Computed example of a mutant assay.
Amino acid sequence: MPSAPLFRFGVIADPQYADLEPNLTLNRYPANSLVKLREAIEEFNRRDLAFVVTLGDIIDREWKSFDAILPVYETLRHRKHFLLGNHDFVVAPEHLLSVPARVGMLSAYYDFGLSGYRFIALDGNEISVFAPPEGDPRRQEARELMKALENAGAPNGQRWNAAMGRAQYDWLAVKLEEAKASGEKVIVMSHYPVFPDNAHNALDSDRILALLAEHDHVVAYLNGHNHAGNFGVSGGTYFVNFMGMVDTIDSTAYAIVSVYPDRLEITGFGRETDRTLPLR
């Protein structure tokens, strides 16, 4: 096996910080995430990483929560990428449209290239009952999607899930083709899982899964949202659901992914799982 990776990157899912009492029912300790995040960043700063990505739910709720957690991220010496999750929109209505800019995102979805890889970061929140402003037709569209899933007996027609809009879906399809044409492998990142079947999957998970299945250069899909974590393989693509940092009083969860020519090596910290994923 090759001894040196092409590059490594750090992964954080669902720190979900807020100055709140613990949710004992769900075993979530949002106030403790500042300490856990500091520890993760100290570990990341000791490593040679290309970047660190947070897969959404930076905060649990309240606009002021960003003021406490974002300065912790400023101590990171590596490039940082954010994705947004449902909890990032549990803010006052006047702030809904400003959430991407608050965390320094020029766009809520984007892509970047690195050493023969194309990373595609999705905004899974576009069609939802929480991210669009009140009265926006996308809220009604989300309700209709949820109802259709419920009627079909699917587990994921939940108010905490969401879907991509048509323009972003078309953009994703174009980016996948561009990567194929340039000989790049693809890693897709989103807050929401799409596989295996789960109550936390995106409202449009079937559509996304079908699109990815058309492309054998998509090696992995990385997400958070389901704090318990999950894993599956479909159409030769690995679907890795990272565990939520916010869960438990003092154990953490984060990871470092090492990308080799023939495999991905995931090193888990705290509750997160170690995995070796051979590439086709």
Rank of each mutant, 00 (worst) to 15 (best):
D247L: 03
N226V: 04
V246Y: 10
L209Y: 07
N198R: 11
A199G: 04
V219Y: 11
E214W: 01
Y238Q: 01
G232C: 09
L209R: 14
K180I: 02
D197L: 15
G235M: 08
D204Q: 12
A213L: 13
N201L: 11
A199E: 14
D206L: 10
T237C: 13
H217G: 06
Q168P: 09
D170K: 11
I187T: 06
F239T: 08
L209N: 06
A202I: 09
A228Q: 12
I249E: 15
H217N: 15
M243C: 03
I208V: 15
G244V: 06
A173L: 10
Y221E: 05
M245K: 08
A253L: 02
T237P: 00
A202K: 06
E184D: 11
A167E: 14
E184S: 06
A228F: 09
G232R: 11
D170V: 10
H200P: 00
H217F: 08
A228L: 14
G236C: 08
G229Q: 08
A228K: 14
G183D: 01
I256E: 00
L203Q: 06
L172R: 01
Y169M: 12
A202L: 11
I208S: 04
H215G: 01
A220T: 06
Y238L: 08
L222S: 03
M189F: 12
A213S: 15
G224Q: 10
P193Q: 09
H215R: 14
I249V: 15
H227F: 11
D247F: 02
G183A: 07
L209K: 14
V233I: 15
F242N: 04
V186N: 02
G224H: 07
N201T: 12
V240K: 05
D204H: 08
D247E: 15
P196S: 10
Y192S: 07
D250G: 13
H215D: 00
S251Q: 09
H225R: 07
N241C: 13
H225Y: 09
G232W: 10
V246R: 07
Y254L: 00
I249M: 10
V240A: 09
N226S: 04
S182V: 09
